[in-house]
């Protein structure tokens, strides 16, 4: 088969995908980049909430999520414990730098915003040429209609296409060579090999309803890497 690229590392054991569906945060264990579908289980029940965005802080092993019934960001330990309220749509974390990013699907002016993890230093990062933004650790943008992924460095602000032909993504996570996204056309978690640019797998939960945010929960924090670099 194809040889792995030098910048693709095997994942440490105990890495998961987390996704939100119908008032729950579910997890799928990963073996390498493969989803162990038979072992998918619920991590957190929030039965009266509509959980939308999910993010993971690998330093403190905390899950962050947004929910729309009382617009807010909350967090809880992945090892169990009471959820605690923290700040609103798609969110991601950058634990080494203590930064949160989130996408605001305000129809008149969609934008991507950022703040420190305590909510201070809030500012707008991107607001031009966005239709339905979603964010991932490398900041992935989804201009509706074009069905392509773009990549942007928060510091430099340059945007570049990395993938074309994706279906109807909502949440998105990157992990080594793979991009995972929740798809609203199939109600599934889809895995895409971003070097080959092809879909490699999909997981369709038993419950057929929309899947929202998606995050990768690493067993160990990944070393600093620039996801925008393909070469």
């Amino acid at each position: 088969g194809p040889t792995p690229r030098p910048d693709v590392h095997p994942l440490p054991p105990g890495t998961y995908l987390l996704y939100a569906q119908s008032g729950r945060i579910e997890h799928i264990p990963l073996e390498g980049y493969d989803m162990k579908k038979d072992e998918a289980k619920t991590l957190l029940h929030l039965p009266e909430k509509v959980v939308i965005g999910v993010a993971y802080d690998c330093v403190d092993k905390m899950v962050y999520w947004t929910e729309i019934t009382s617009p807010s960001i909350s967090k809880a330990s992945i090892h169990g414990g009471e959820p605690t309220p923290v700040i609103r749509s798609a969110i991601i974390t950058d634990p080494p730098n203590g930064i949160l990013y989130w996408a605001d699907w305000n129809r008149d002016s969609p934008k991507i915003e950022t703040s420190y993890m305590d909510g201070s230093n809030r500012r707008v990062l991107v607001k031009d040429d966005l239709d339905y933004p979603t964010v991932s650790l490398m900041t992935v943008l989804f201009p509706e209609g074009t069905h392509k992924l773009e990549c942007m460095s928060p510091g430099r602000g340059d945007r570049r296409q990395i993938l074309e032909g994706i279906q109807y993504p909502f949440g998105m996570a990157t992990l080594g060579k793979n991009i995972y996204y929740t798809d609203w056309r199939r109600d599934a978690v889809v895995a895409v090999d971003r070097y080959a640019g092809t879909e490699s797998d999909e997981f369709q939960p038993q419950k057929r309803t929309k899947l929202y945010g998606l995050a990768a929960a690493y067993s160990q924090c990944p070393q600093g890497q620039n996801y925008c670099d393909v070469n």
Binding site: S22, G23, P47, E48, V50, I68, T209, K210
Partner: peptide, 9 residues
């Protein structure tokens, strides 16, 4: 919902 008393989003 806790008793399946709510509709999905």
């Amino acid at each position: 919902g806790k008793r399946c008393e709510l509709c999905d989003d």
